[in-house]
Every structure is written in structure tokens, then in C-alpha cells.
Design a protein around this nucleic acid. Structure first.
Length: 507
RNA sequence: GCCGCGUUGGUCAAGAGGUUAAGACGCCUCCCUUUCACGGAGGAAUCACGGGUUCGAGUCCCGUACGUGGUACCA
């Protein structure tokens, strides 16, 4: 069975930003389209250097986006455990196997010794400061030390790491599903640490061992991994697992909107937009809001994210998740980074709000109103309000601003906009309007409008001059949907009450 | 420095040798609407540069520049 995996390493302070979610999304799309199974691997977030809750947070985010994996730490699975710390011993065994076959070695250098090696090289004017074939025989490791000495150091459990032994003057070839054939010289890659002094594996070892053991067929990740891909390919080869090596794809980066570098957590605060899907409680900075809290629909969020680096070639921009699964092709993923544009992100949300029906929107909007202290009764009035205002809402939170006056009598009335052109005739008009409206049997927008215009005609006033005052009386300012629609939904009593309330203010 | 990857309007991008170089966001103008949106019509704005190859290059090749990533006992 084919499987695609996505691997996460939350940063030590947690959070999961746009790039990570998009990687998960593309993995999901590809996996669902071709095989229907994708695996989530999470790094050792239970280690002390990681903030608590990082793993649960990742799963929450993916759940909100609707792209939960089929295998992962949140589930029991055939190839578990899925958490790195629970597989610690496994990695060690495989690393030892590499030492035996001559593709890896024990290294006993202390960080200080490595640092001084680099200082020396720097002093000699060298610009390559890597721990590699150039220096490994001068360092303290099982290649340079006599076997007995290595034995002895191992026996007393002298702190050590296991490093891969990269052969010089070789070329590593591999195929990237997005970039095509890639060739790199081994001379540029250093003897990467495979097992750290604390016994935990580095990413390089873990990713290869896990992918092999979990029978992963497609390994997709961000472009930042491209330079270390040769290490991974070599590892597959050194283990003798070449035939099982997954197909690679390296996704482009999401870049800062204002120029240089990949998007980072800090850019969110600096530029005033979210970089997380959902709110994250940062141990240092406190709560950081996400797209969800800002009023994004998950449909819009993943749609926007997917289009930041992929399109189906037809010009279509609005896709549901299912449609994306259907249309997705990895060959059409861009090979260069894309700058994130918050304006465009909001456009996607606006489009999704417009196209979503009231039933979809109602629970979210209801929640927003309730948080503001307005309880929503059953009945269809709320649905009608949503229908009426949704075209003018870019974010879900805009529903409050666009619809609060249906529930709360405006506390401030923009009388200034009326006053300059106010006169007794207009006052008389509204007195008459109250009288006529209160006698009305049918309370609906068209009837309200007809009546309104009839009275205006009788008073020899232009309806246009009266509609703005009417609007301001009802909602407090120059905004909102059609006035008669508003009055219709407000109901007779409330409409008349608001006119009566405002009239004295205009004297 | 070295090693990768990349480069079509301000942004996202279509384009796989011959196009008036799509479309979207944003911006501007107009129409609709006696509020504001929505909707509609239009506009400004792009192939990084230099060499090849070719009858013909945004498309292929080579350089340069620029951007970006890596160069950790981080992922």
C-alpha cells in the first residue's frame, strides 16, 4: 500500500505556521487523490525542550482544516509508535548497523574540540568548516583512534555521537517530483550526526528509518530540506534499502510579504496578520491569534494556502477540499517561493462567505453574537439577517458589525449628517410615517418602500432626501443593507420606536 | 565563502518556439445602488540582464546579476 507522510517538528516554543500547514495540506491532497492514506509523524515534542501541548495543537489545527491524517500519534496504528522518543532504541540499532558496515563511525569530540577545529580552519583561510573527509582523521573518532581505544571509550560510556561517513568525490543523483533530476557532489556534504550524545536520533536518521519501517512511498517536505537530501539518499543506499526509497518532492517556501526570507512567526506581529491557523498560547508572548479567531472559514484558509504555490492551470481559484483532491497534481506545484499576501487571503474568505449558505454560516455567526452577549432565539429571523448581510462580510467577525443593530438599539446616532438639511417638513414626514406604519398590516420591505414613497410624494419631498435620515434613525449611521430590508427585519414596533427616539434629537 | 534551488506586472500566476503575454488580488475610472457593500464595464502595470541556438525565444543553452535555502549533537 502506498503512503505519504508528513513529519512535524514544532519549534520549541510551539505553534505551527503557514508553511507547515501547507506541507500537510499538499501531502493530504496527494495522498487522498492517489492512495487515501497519509501518515503524521511528530518529533519528540515530549522532550523537555519543547513546550507542552505542541503535538495536540498540531492535531487540533489539522482537524480544523479538515486534513487529519490516517496514521499518527493521535491514533493507534500498525506502524506505531509514531513519536520519536518512543522509538529511541530502534534508531540506535540501525545506527550501529551502519557503523558495522563501515558507513558510520563513533565520534568522541566535545563541542569545544569541534569549535577549536573550526577556529583552526578559519585561521588557515579555509572557507569550508565542516566535519568531513578533510578533517575526520584528525579528530577523535573510531576512524582515527586505534580500535582498542574506541572500545575503551565506548565501555566507559564516554559521551559520543554517531556520524555518517560520507565518501568523497561521489555524486548523488535523485529525482524530485517538482524539480526533476538533481545531482550533487558528496564533497559538499559533511559527516552529519546520526545519533546525538543524548541518544536521540537526528532528523536525518529518523526520517530514513521511519520511512523505511513505515513503508512510506512518498516523502514530501519543504524546500529547506533540499540541501540535505543527499544525506538521506545516501542513507537509503548505505542501509541497502534503495529499492524502497520513497519518491521525493520539495515544496517551495512561503516568503515574507515585504521581501526577504521565509515567513516566520515574528512577521505576523510585525506586519499585522496571523501566521497560525489557530490561536496558540506562546510561553513567552502569550496568546497569539490565528486565522480561525480572526474570522476565517477553514474552507477559505486551506483554499488560500493551497493556491500559494499550486494551481490547476485553468484559472479557477475557488476550490473545495474535495475539488482540490480531485484536481491536485504535484507536477503543477511551483518550484519557487511565494510571498504571502494577506489581502488576497481575505479575498478568499470573502468569496467563501458569499458562496456559503446560511446553514453553514449560522453556527459560527451565532457564536460570535453570543460572545458579544446577544442570545439568538430560534426562528428564522437570524437566518434572514445572515442572508441579508453576508455579501458585505469579509471575515466572520464582520457579521457583528454588520448585524449588531438588529439586536441592539444604536447608542450613538449620527445626527450631524442629517441636521444640516433638516427642516420641519421632514419632521412632519416622519410623524406621518410613524402614523401610517403603525396602521400597516403587512410588514415587509416592498410594502414599506411603497408606503414610504407615497407619503413622500404627498409631502412634496424627494424620497432620496428622506432615506438617509431614515437609515440613520434605524442603524445610527451611514451603513448597512437596504433601509427597507432593515426595517422589515427590525419589525414594526422596533422601527417605530427608533424613529420616535431620534426625532427629538433633531430639534 | 562554498553548495543547492529559483527569477513573467506591486502580489499570486497562465504560458511547455510563432499569443494583441490569460486570469486573480490590490490600485484607478465609470455604471448600478439616493448609505456602504455586492454586481457590471473599463484602465494603468510584467517576461532580471547579456550572449548564443533558431527563419523566429518569456519558452532551449551558457554566463552575469539578484533573491532564497543550506552550510548545527535544529528540524
Amino acid at each position: 500500500m502506498n503512503k505519504v507522510r508528513v513529519r512535524f517538528a514544532p519549534s520549541p516554543t510551539g505553534g505551527l505556521h503557514l508553511g507547515g500547514i501547507r506541507t500537510a495540506l499538499y501531502n493530504y491532497l496527494f495522498a487522498k487523490k492517489h492512495f487515501g492514506n497519509f501518515v503524521l509523524r511528530v518529533e519528540d515534542t515530549d522532550q523537555t525542550r519543547y513546550v507542552k501541548g505542541a503535538e495536540e495543537y498540531i492535531i487540533d489545527c489539522l482537524n480544523w482544516c479538515g486534513i487529519l491524517p490516517d496514521e499518527g500519534p493521535h491514533l493507534e496504528g500498525e506502524y506505531g509508535p509514531y513519536r520519536q522518543s518512543e522509538r529511541k532504541n530502534l534508531y540506535r540499532e540501525y545506527a550501529e548497523q551502519l557503523v558495522k558496515s563501515g558507513h558510520a563511525y563513533y565520534a568522541f569530540d566535545t563541542p569545544e574540540e569541534i569549535e577549536s577545529m573550526r577556529e583552526i580552519l578559519k585561521g588557515e583561510g579555509k572557507d569550508n568548516l565542516q566535519y568531513d573527509y578533510r578533517v575526520r582523521f584528525e579528530m577523535k573518532n573510531s576512524l582515527s583512534l586505534p580500535p582498542e581505544e574506541t572500545e575503551a571509550l565506548l565501555k566507559i560510556n564516554f559521551p559520543h555521537v554517531i556520524r555518517i561517513k560520507i565518501e568523497r568525490d561521489e555524486f548523488v543523483h535523485f529525482k524530485d517530483m517538482i524539480r526533476g533530476d538533481i545531482e550533487m557532489s558528496t564533497n559538499g556534504v559533511d559527516d552529519k550526526v546520526l545519533i546525538k550524545a543524548d541518544g536521540m536520533p537526528t532528523y536525518h536518521l529518523a526520517v530514513v528509518v521511519d520511512d523505511y519501517l513505515m513503508k512510506i512511498t512518498h516523502a514530501f517536505r519543504g524546500e529547506e530540506w533540499l540541501p540535505s537530501a543527499p544525506v538521506h539518499v545516501l542513507l537509503w543506499k548505505y542501509f541497502g534499502w534503495e529499492k524502497h526509497m520513497p519518491q521525493w518532492a520539495h515544496f517551495p517556501l512561503i516568503l515574507k510579504p515585504d521581501g526577504n526570507g521565509k515567513l516566520s512567526k515574528r512577521d505576523g506581529e510585525r506586519l499585522g496578520f496571523p501566521v497560525f491557523a489557530m490561536k496558540w498560547n506562546d510561553p513567552v508572548k502569550g496568546e497569539i491569534k490565528g486565522f480561525k479567531e480572526l474570522g476565517f472559514l477553514p474552507e477559505a484558509f486551506i483554499n488560500m494556502l493551497a493556491m500559494l504555490g499550486w494551481n490547476d492551470g485553468t484559472g479557477q481559484e475557488i476550490f473545495s477540499l474535495d475539488e482540490m483532491v480531485d484536481k491536485f497534481s504535484i507536477e503543477r506545484v511551483q518550484s519557487h517561493g511565494a510571498k504571502f499576501d494577506f489581502e488576497k487571503a481575505k479575498w478568499y474568505n470573502h468569496e467563501w462567505i458569499k458562496k456559503s449558505d446560511v446553514d453553514r454560516l449560522k453556527p459560527d455567526v451565532k457564536k460570535i453574537f453570543e460572545e458579544k452577549g446577544v442570545s439568538i432565539n430560534d426562528g428564522d429571523q437570524f437566518e434572514k439577517i445572515i442572508e441579508l448581510i453576508k455579501d458585505r462580510c469579509i471575515l466572520l467577525t464582520d457579521f457583528w458589525e454588520q448585524g449588531c443593530f438588529f439586536f441592539i438599539t444604536p447608542s450613538e446616532i449620527d445626527t450631524a449628517s442629517i441636521l444640516s438639511k433638516w427642516n420641519e417638513n421632514k419632521n412632519q414626514f416622519f410623524v406621518e410615517l410613524i402614523r401610517t406604519y403603525s396602521l400597516l398590516n403587512s410588514w415587509e420591505a416592498t410594502a414599506l418602500e411603497t408606503t414610504f414613497k407615497e407619503i413622500a410624494a404627498a409631502s412634496k419631498l424627494k424620497p432620496g432626501e428622506l432615506m438617509l435620515p431614515f437609515r440613520i434613525m434605524l442603524v445610527g449611521g451611514k451603513y448597512g443593507p437596504g433601509v427597507f430590508e432593515i426595517a422589515a427585519l427590525l419589525g414594526k414596533d422596533e422601527t417605530i420606536k427608533r424613529i420616535e427616539h431620534t426625532l427629538p434629537l433633531l430639534r
